[in-house]
Design a protein around this nucleic acid. Structure first.
Lengths: 331, 331
DNA sequence: AGTGTTATTGCAACCGATCTCAGCAACCGA
DNA sequence: TCGGTTGCTGAGATCGGTTGCAATAACACT
C-alpha cells in the first residue's frame, strides 16, 4: 500500500489537508458536502488517521494502561478482559502492563505512559498503594486504583465492599449450620486483602465464635499452608472462608490430597466469583465481585476525573454465588 | 514537569538537538565525552525520548501486538505473561489484543497495528488461520502464528508436537494399565486442536483399542458434555484424555458432581501444563507445553523474519507432567 | 606546507497529523 | 450600497524526534 497520509487524501479530494483533518476530527466545522466527499474518498483509499501523529500533536492518545501484578491470576485476567472491551467501546486501546509484583516496574510504566500521552491509567495493585509516592509522577494524577486507598485521598478508586462480602459468606455458612469457621488469607498485600481479613476477625468475634486464622500469608502457597494447618488441628473448623478464589482452589486441592473432602468433610467458600470456579471440583461457592462492572466503572471514573477533576470512590456490592463447595457441617 | 523535549536537553547540554538524538539512538556516532555529557544532563532532567515521535519519523515502533481470543483462558494468560517479559527484555511493549473469537476483530487489530508501525505481531488464533486472507493485510506479512498453518506457508509458526503429546499421554496411560481410553476434544478450532484429535484417533487405533470420542465440540462446554456422555455409557473407558487442561477441569468437575471420582474411578489427563493444574482437585496430570519457550521463540522468529525474511516453523517437544489425576484402572 | 582522509557536529527538511489565524464569499439589515 | 457577521477553507507553524548533507576540525602523509 503506497503510504497513505493525510496529504494524499487531501490531494485526491482536491482540498487542503487541514480540511481533511477537520472532516475527521471536527466534522461540524466542515461543509456537509465537502465532508461527505472527503470521507468517501478516504474510504475508497482505505485511509485511517495515524494515531501516532495525532497523539504527538494533540498530546493525548487513546492508549490506556492497565497495570496488574499478574495476568495469570484469573481475577486480573477477567478484569483485563472486561476492560479491553470497555476501553474498546470508548475508542481506547488497552495496554496491558504486568509488573510481577515489582513496584519499580509500576513506576517505569508510569513514565512510559506519560510519554505516550495516555489520558489516564488503571492500576490493580498487589500492595497497599502509597498515593503520596504515586503522586510524584505526573501520571500519578490520572490514575484509578482498583483497591481501597488510605484516607480519602485524591485518587479515584473502585472496590467491592469487603466487609459486606465477608458478612455474606459468614451468613451463608451460619445458615447452613456452621459455627466454627476458619479463614485463609490470600494472595496480594492490598488494602482489600487486609479489609477482608479484618472483617472476618471482627464479624467472627461478633457472632460469638472465636476466629481461626489458618494462614495469613499473602503468597501463592497460603492455601496449601492453610490446609496443612487445618489438618494439624484437633478440632478443626467445619467451614473455611478463603480470601479469594485462587486460595480456595489451593485449599481444596491440598485438602483433597489428604483425603479431606469438600463439602462433605469441610465447606469452603471463596471470594471473587471467577468463572473458573464453576468448573472446579467441586464447583466453588463464592462471594462474587462484579468484575465486569469494576472494569467499566474504572474507566468511567478515569474519564470523569479527566474532565472535571472529580475524585470518586465507588464501592460495589458483592453477591453470594452458591455452587457446590458448601453444605451443612458434618455431624 | 515543564515539557521535556529534545530541544530542552540540547540547550541544557549546549549542543544541537541532532546530537542529542544521536547520543541516544546511535551512540557510536557521537564523541564519547559529548555523549556522556548529554546523557548525564538528560538523566538529570529526567528526560526520556518520546516513543511516539520516534515511531512517527522512523516508521517503526516498539509496540508488538499479541492477539489472543480470550485472555481469561489460562493458556493465553500464561502465554501473555511470558511474552510480556520476553518483549520487555528486547525493548518492546506488548499490546494485548483480545478478539473474543471474532475474526473481524483480528483484521481490525491488523490495520491498527500497521498504523502504529508495529514491527510485527503474534497471533494465537482460535480458528484455523487462513494465511491467504491474512496476507491481504500489509501487516499479515509480519506475523508469527502460534499454531500450525496449512501447507508450508510463508508464515512463521511455533507449536508443540501434537502427535508426540498425545503419544506421551497414551503411553503414560498404557503404562498404568489402561486399555480403554476416551478423548474429549476441546476449546478452539485451531489446527493444533485438530491435530491432537487426529493423533488420538490414529494412535489409539494403532494400539489396537477402539477410539472413544466422548465429545468433539470446540466450545467451553465440551468437557461437561464429554462427562455426560461418559456417564451414559455402559462400558465407559477407564481413562480420558482431554484436549487441553481447561477441558480436563470441566470433565473432572462434571464427573465429580455425579459422584465419579478422579483418579479412583477414572483417570484424566490434560494437555497444556497450566500452573493452575497443580492446584486443581486432584492436581492434574497433563502433557506440558513449554509455554514460556513458545513466547520467547515467537518473538525471535518474528525478529528473524523481519531481518532476513526467513520463515521458520518451530515444533517444540511436549513433556509428561505426572500429578494426581491418573492412576491404575479400577479393577 | 599542501592535500587527503576521518571523526564530529550543526543545519534543515521531513514524518503525519492539529490548530490558530487570515482570507474570501455569501448574507443581513439599514 | 456599505460595514458587519457568519461559514468555510487554505497557509503555515508546530508536536518531538531522525537523518542526509554540509561544514569544520584534527590528524596523517608526501
Amino acid at each position: 500500500m503506497p503510504d497513505l497520509s493525510i496529504d494524499v487524501v487531501a490531494k485526491a479530494a482536491g482540498v487542503h489537508r487541514s480540511t481533511v483533518s477537520r472532516a475527521f476530527s471536527r466534522p461540524e466545522a466542515v461543509k456537509r458536502e465537502t465532508r461527505e466527499h472527503i470521507l468517501k474518498v478516504a474510504e475508497g483509499l482505505g485511509y485511517t488517521m495515524s494515531p501516532l501523529a495525532q497523539a504527538l500533536r494533540t498530546k493525548t492518545s487513546t492508549f490506556i494502561p492497565l497495570i496488574v501484578p499478574d495476568i495469570t491470576n484469573p481475577f486480573f485476567a477477567e478484569l483485563a478482559k472486561t476492560m479491553t472491551q470497555a476501553a474498546d467501546e470508548r475508542g481506547y486501546q488497552l495496554l496491558l502492563c504486568v509488573t510481577n509484583g515489582d513496584p519499580a516496574k509500576t513506576d517505569g510504566y508510569f513514565t512510559a505512559m506519560q510519554a505516550m500521552y495516555a489520558p489516564f491509567g488503571i492500576v490493580a495493585p498487589s500492595t497497599k498503594v502509597d498515593t503520596e509516592a504515586m503522586k510524584r509522577f505526573d501520571f500519578g494524577h490520572k490514575v484509578v486504583v482498583i483497591d481501597r486507598v488510605e484516607g480519602d485521598d485524591a485518587v479515584p478508586t473502585v472496590t467491592v465492599d469487603s466487609r459486606r462480602g465477608i458478612m455474606i459468606a459468614l451468613e451463608h455458612l451460619h445458615s447452613l449450620g456452621h459455627t466454627s469457621i476458619g479463614y485463609v488469607s490470600g494472595i496480594a498485600g492490598t488494602h482489600t486483602a487486609q479489609d477482608r481479613m479484618d472483617a472476618y476477625l471482627e464479624l467472627s468475634a461478633d457472632s460469638g465464635s472465636a476466629p481461626v486464622v489458618l494462614d495469613s500469608g499473602s503468597d501463592l502457597d497460603a492455601g496449601t499452608r492453610g490446609a496443612e494447618h487445618y489438618l494439624e488441628m484437633d478440632n478443626p473448623p467445619t467451614a473455611i472462608i478463603a480470601a479469594n478464589d485462587m486460595v480456595a482452589f489451593a485449599v481444596i486441592s491440598a485438602l483433597g490430597q489428604r483425603g479431606v473432602r469438600v463439602p462433605e468433610d469441610v465447606s469452603v467458600i471463596g471470594f471473587d466469583g471467577l468463572a473458573l470456579g464453576a468448573r472446579f471440583n467441586p464447583p466453588l461457592t463464592t462471594v462474587r465481585q462484579p468484575i465486569a462492572d469494576m472494569g467499566h466503572i474504572a474507566i468511567e471514573l478515569a474519564e470523569k476525573q479527566n474532565i472535571d477533576g472529580s475524585v470518586d470512590h465507588i464501592v460495589l456490592e458483592p453477591q453470594l454465588l452458591v455452587r457446590g463447595s458448601t453444605s451443612g457441617p458434618r455431624k
